[in-house]
Computed example of a mutant assay.
Amino acid sequence: MSEAVQAGGAPKPVGHYPHARRVGDLLFLSGIGPRDPVSNAIVGNVHDADGRLISYDIDAQCRAVFANVRAVLQASGAHWEDLVDVTVYLTDMDHDFKTYNQVWAEYFPDAATAPCRTTLGIGSLPTPIAIELKCIAHLPERR
């Protein structure tokens, strides 16, 4: 048996899927990007007068992704510390990995208690974002 979660404090999914699904004591989050939950705008993107993307702020996008992950965790009854595995998708590994790694270290200062992490460089994501996270959390008995 599983339970789908839609988080009111996170941006709406860009497709027909839940923010997360709980199966037993595990919580599987769908891919989470850096969109603003209120405006749906992509945080850190800069567009020209014709609406074309001309630059983005990877630091701002990283922080927005973490805030959105936290919102889904909270709506699911989970905590930041419950994350056990994170897959990171970056569209420009050469440009963005160093900044991402610095932000990660702020949010997870103790490597011994941080979730496992895999980082992949990919060609693109479904919307014009530079980063997306896919997370798994363990929900201990305390809830």
Results as ranks from 00 to 15, higher is better:
Ile32Met: 08
Ser55Lys: 05
Val23Lys: 10
Pro115Lys: 14
Ala112Asp: 11
Thr87Ser: 13
Gly15Ile: 00
Ser2Ile: 01
Phe66Leu: 13
Asn45Lys: 06
Gly33Val: 11
Ala64Val: 04
Phe108Ile: 02
Ile42Asp: 04
Gly44Tyr: 10
Gln6Ala: 05
Arg63His: 14
Pro126Ala: 03
Gly77Gln: 14
Arg22Phe: 11
Asn101Trp: 04
Ala41Asp: 14
His19Ile: 00
Gly121Phe: 05
Ser30Tyr: 02
Ala111Asp: 13
Pro37Val: 01
Ala67Met: 07
Leu133Tyr: 12
Thr119Asp: 13
His95Ile: 12
Val72Pro: 08
Val72Trp: 01
Gly8Cys: 02
Pro11Lys: 08
Asn101Ile: 02
His79Tyr: 15
Arg52Trp: 11
Leu133Glu: 11
Arg143Phe: 11
Asn40Asp: 05
Met93Pro: 05
Asp94Ile: 05
Asp59Cys: 08
Tyr100Ile: 08
Val103Asn: 00
Asp82Gln: 09
Ile42Ala: 03
Asp82Phe: 10
Ile42His: 00
Pro13Met: 01
Ala75Asn: 07
Gln102Ser: 06
Arg142Asp: 14
Gln61Glu: 09
Gln74Tyr: 10
Thr119Cys: 07
Pro37Met: 01
Leu27Ala: 12
Asp92Val: 13
Val23Thr: 10
Ala20Asn: 07
Ala112Trp: 03
Arg142Val: 11
Pro34Glu: 02
Ala111Arg: 06
Val38Ser: 08
Ala49Trp: 03
Pro18Leu: 04
Leu83Trp: 14
Ile42Tyr: 00
Ala60Ser: 08
Ala137Arg: 14
Asn40Arg: 01
Pro13Tyr: 02
Leu29Glu: 02
Val86Met: 07
His95Trp: 12
Ala137Gly: 10
Val5Glu: 05
Ile136Val: 15
Arg143Cys: 12
His47Tyr: 15
Arg63Ile: 00
Leu26Thr: 10
His47Gly: 09
Leu26Val: 07
Asp59His: 14
Glu106Ser: 02
Asp96Asn: 07
Glu141Arg: 11
Ala75Lys: 01
Lys98His: 05
Leu53Ile: 12
Ile54Phe: 04
Pro140Cys: 15
Asp59Asn: 11
Cys135Asn: 12
Ala75Tyr: 04
Asn40Glu: 14
Asn45Phe: 06
Asp57Asn: 15
Ala60Asp: 07
Gly77Asp: 14
Pro11Cys: 02
